[in-house]
Every structure is written in structure tokens, then in C-alpha cells.
């Protein structure tokens, strides 16, 4: 077990009481927290030098009726031990009308990630300056990356129903 990870774990546990910290791999630290404390945890990590937001991801746990947001943080540093660390901050929110505060005030590059998750998962990020469509052109009833969106059925219903021009002419 590496020193940086354990000292960071102790440091975090002394500041926050309702979080769960585990060192899952050699250099992967997983923090599970409530949705309200994401901002404070991320800003304290940022103050500790973990200043690179690598990814904001989302997992749809449809059986538990929850969406899990994963913020992956690493550090811009030439210190080799610290550079290896990847911190996964996880929080769970309800699937119906999911809402969360934006983390753009801490990590500026969160903007496109949050826009993408808004579009693909329907999560509403409060305080985000422009939650306008990023990737998609058509509108979908269920946000397409959720587990209950069936792409194969969608393809059959939309793309396969469009007739070939030759067929149409033949029928007329």
C-alpha cells in the first residue's frame, strides 16, 4: 500500500464524517459520499493539489433506481507518487428528476462533461451557464444512455420504417 493514498485517506476521514474511503487498487482511491458533500470534497481535493478533473461519468443502476456519478480526479504534478493517484469520487442520486450542483466553479473543464451528461442521462446541473444540446440532433423521449432506452427497438421504429425511394415509386 502506498503512502500517499493512506495519508490522503486519513486526511479526508478527519475532515468529513459521512464518507466511505477505500483504496481499491494500488493507486486508485474511491470516495463514496452524499450528493450534498460532493462540492466540499472536490474543493478540498483541489486545494490539496489534485487539480485535474479527468472525467465525469455516470452509471445507470436501474435495479436500484439510482444514477451514480463518478468524478475522476488526478494531479498535475512532477511528483511520481502523487501523479499516479487517481481519485474516484462517487455519489448516488435518484433516477427521477435527477439534480446536482455544477462543479464548474472548482474545475473549469467540467462544462462539456456536464452538458454531455445532461443530454445523455437527463441530469440537471444547477448553476450551469449553458445546458444546451451538445451532441444530439433529434430529441429522444428517454435520454439515450439510460438503460431503459432500447437502441435496437428505436432503430426498428425510426430508421427501418423509412421506405426506399424505388419501393415507393413501385407501389404508386
Amino acid at each position: 500500500m502506498n503512502h500517499t493514498g493512506t495519508s490522503l485517506k486519513e486526511n479526508l476521514l478527519s475532515y468529513f464524517d459521512d464518507i466511505l474511503v477505500e483504496i481499491s487498487d494500488e493507486h486508485r482511491l474511491t470516495i463514496s459520499c452524499k450528493k450534498d458533500s460532493v462540492i466540499t470534497i472536490l474543493s478540498s481535493l483541489n486545494r490539496n493539489g489534485y487539480n485535474h478533473l479527468a472525467l465525469i461519468s455516470c452509471v445507470d443502476w436501474i435495479k436500484d433506481n439510482e444514477l451514480e456519478l463518478v468524478y475522476i480526479i488526478s494531479a498535475y504534478t512532477e511528483d511520481s507518487e502523487k501523479g499516479k493517484m487517481n481519485i474516484l469520487v462517487k455519489t448516488k442520486i435518484a433516477r427521477e428528476k435527477p439534480e446536482l450542483l455544477t462543479v464548474m466553479s472548482i474545475y473549469e473543464n467540467a462544462e462539456p462533461y456536464e452538458r454531455e451528461l445532461h443530454e445523455l442521462y437527463g441530469i440537471n446541473f444547477k448553476g450551469h451557464p449553458r445546458l444546451i444540446p451538445l451532441l444530439l440532433e433529434r430529441e429522444y423521449e428517454i435520454p439515450p444512455f439510460r438503460k431503459d432506452f432500447d437502441t435496437r427497438k428505436y432503430v426498428q421504429d425510426v430508421f427501418d420504417k423509412i421506405p426506399f425511394v424505388e419501393d415507393k415509386k413501385g407501389r404508386k
Partner: peptide, 20 residues
């Protein structure tokens, strides 16, 4: 015909339906 994206929700499957 869509190629390997045959079940993707965001790609056009048969382009000749839209332009010759």
C-alpha cells in the same frame, strides 16, 4: 446499410433513402 453501427440510435442506416 449501417455497417457496424447497425444498432446505433444516431447513424443513418441506408444513405440512398435520403440522397441518390
Amino acid at each position: 446499410n449501417g455497417g457496424m453501427y447497425w444498432d446505433s440510435y444516431n447513424t443513418i442506416k441506408h444513405l440512398d433513402k435520403y440522397i441518390p
